[in-house]
């Protein structure tokens, strides 16, 4: 039970940190920020790696959890990079 309290503590602190971190953002960067943050949300990939694959159903679930998270991670970072490169050249 105590571990969950500790994890909850990390959760709350991270939210406040996130709010402080991004409070001033120029509107030019709204889309790249969203797309970049979106790639970060693919972090579920890390969690999905450790899923149980004991049965057929479990294997299928794990496979798709990893598959979709990978699309999110790879696609998200690449498209953000493409967009930001475009902003750079003038």
């Amino acid at each position: 039970m105590e571990i969950y309290l500790l994890l909850f503590f990390i959760l709350i602190l991270s939210i406040f940190l996130g709010l402080e971190l991004i409070s001033k953002i120029p509107s030019t960067l709204h889309t790249p920020l969203m797309s970049g943050a979106n790639a970060i949300s693919g972090i579920t990939l890390v969690g999905a790696l450790t899923l149980d694959t004991g049965s057929n159903l479990q294997s299928v679930l794990a496979f798709f959890a990893i598959l979709f998270a990978s699309i999110n991670v790879f696609g998200g970072y690449l498209v953000t990079n493409r967009m930001l490169k475009m902003f750079k050249k003038k």
Binding site: I3, S14, G18, L19, I22, I25, H30, A37, G47
Partner: peptide
């Protein structure tokens, strides 16, 4: 992240949650 007791998921997820909320 809480579910799996995985701190990386918690921190990264919250950062995204907060940035999305601000937008």
């Amino acid at each position: 992240g809480i579910l799996l007791s995985n701190t990386a998921l918690i921190v990264a997820g919250c950062l995204v949650g907060a940035s999305g909320l601000i937008l």
